[in-house]
Amino acid sequence: MKGAFAVDSAFIELDRVEKVFDVHRKTGFMRRELRRVRAVDSISFTVARGEMVGYIGPNGAGKSTTIKMLTGILTPSGGRLRVAGIDPSRERTRLAHRIGVVFGQRTTLWWDLPLLDSYRLMHRMYRIPDARYRENLDRLVELLELGDLLDVPVRQLSLGQRMRGDIVAALLHDPEVLYLDEPTIGLDVVSKGKVREFLRELNAEHGTTVLLTTHDLQDIEQLCSRVMVIDHGRLMYDGPLTGLHEVGDSERILVVDLERELPPIEAPAPARVVKVDGPRQWLAFPAAASAAPLVARIAAEYPLVDLSVREPDIEAVIAKMLHSLGDTTDPPSERATA
């Protein structure tokens, strides 16, 4: 796997990167306590050009601190960090031309002006050649279905439309890497689907490297071949998503509506009924396994009315995984020291 990216294997490169904050905490009416917090604690990884990586972890684990160091907003307290060969904290503006950033809940678009006006500003601010700008705008607007909305003031856009608008703004200058912080948060199912489809295409067709943080496990499942899990500032896992499911030993839930109230379904192990409420039954099965055989079996043997699969919550997966890793002192990260 490492060999495959031999030429460009270290497009993003972190070597024992640290970020230490001094936090003043109020402990009483006038008393304050000074505490040293390691928001990022000796993290090392590399991302090859063209990879699409999910960066996940509980709130406050150090995800956004890492992103802020990668984009040059924050200066690391220690270690070595390079993006496209550039030290982000030293050459922030030079790096800005090569990266795109989308902050999920903070729009960079002009609230009272038509979408197109914001793009014109990007055109000039990033000094994008005219032909290139026009080409990119046409392509992005078509892919993200924003054609009819270019003349609409941003304040009149829905959350999903605004997010797509922000993604266009971040990509007009052909960044080689795109950072997305919670790109699907608060979006409806249709918008989520559009954003994901677009990101997949961007990565596959255009070779753009993508690093995203998310709370939505489906984002990761549908987009990322590789995930990194961070907790308490440390890299706890780095590998394929299936590995995450195995390590996290997480389960999906199959909700089955039967024609009538029946005794618990006798499902093939390891699937098992975890709850019964009238004609509705809940079955837990390993998240990594396919639901198809289980569904086929139940459909054959029981009077089935309806069914649905519930994805495991990402926080639950991470929590479970971190719990199972709790005893080992050496996190099983495949590439943590690559």
């Binding site: 503006t93 030079r94 800005a96 031309h97 090569r98 990033y126 000094r127 050649p129 290139r132 200058h173 052909d174 080689e176 596959a204 067709e205 255009h206 070779g207």
Partner: peptide, 22 residues
């Protein structure tokens, strides 16, 4: 298509670096 995009992208990247040095 991916290939042309990248090649063009690289030239553009050189331009960007020059632009950023003003």
């Amino acid at each position: 298509m991916a290939e042309t995009g990248r090649v063009a992208g690289r030239d553009w990247a050189v331009e960007k670096d020059l632009g950023a040095r003003s």
